[in-house]
Design a binder for these strands. Sequence first.
DNA 1: GCAAAGATTTGCT
DNA 2: GCAAATCTTTGCC
Length: 244
Amino acid sequence: MPDRRPTEPPLPTLTSFDRACLAGDPLDAARALVGAYLVREAGDDVRVGRIVEVEAYVGTGDAASHARFGPTDRNRVMWGEPGRAYVYLVYGMYDCLNVVVAPAGQPAAVLVRAVEPIAGIEPMRAARLAHAGARRHAWTDTRREAEAIRLGGLDPPRVTSGPGAVAAAFSIGRTDTGTDLCAPDGSLRLAVSPADFPTEVVATPRVGIAYAAEPWRSIAWRFVDPMSASLSGPAAASRRRSRA
DNA sequence: GCAAAGATTTGCT
DNA sequence: GCAAATCTTTGCC
């Protein structure tokens, strides 16, 4: 029986995320976010993840972007200041965190698809369990216990591999839309570790947008750290299977 | 006012 | 490997 209790290494020194890195070209902003950190801090509950997978959604012309409908009550924040959060509900169940990028007036956002847990893995598991409970109809004690066991058995990199999983693990919901993620002491914020070795970034097509016309469907606007064990999606899943 | 589909995850065949 | 779960938003009547 492996001991899964968190003997977590000391946190790297984190500093606030420079809004200027998000205010220029959206694809540059997306690359800058890979290797940066996502922090959720509330008292003793400190959860930190290193961002390893993002996607850029750029402008009203991008046939995969929510901005393609023009500004609506849901997506209006995409037209606002860079560095704010845009959280939307997908498939009726999962919230997804985006970082608004590009100068105000230009609608663009970067979807955070996966992070690597750095600190707070147990509160992340607990938050995922709470999210599952809140969203399930037939949520009996038996079902809850089974889900707790399943989540407890997940390797840490798998607890936050996928946009819905990231939002659940960091207790992010649509009410977080508009939060300034560059505020140095916000409860939910971005950060960087100046001591980190630069992250290798690989570009691939975006996931889950088969409905979009070309060239948007195939354009390589998904950016990943290829060394990460937390990557989401079918490609990563098949790689994991073949390695096993 | 109603029908349809979605930037997903999980379970079961 | 496929389909369910679940509900908001959009689009069309």
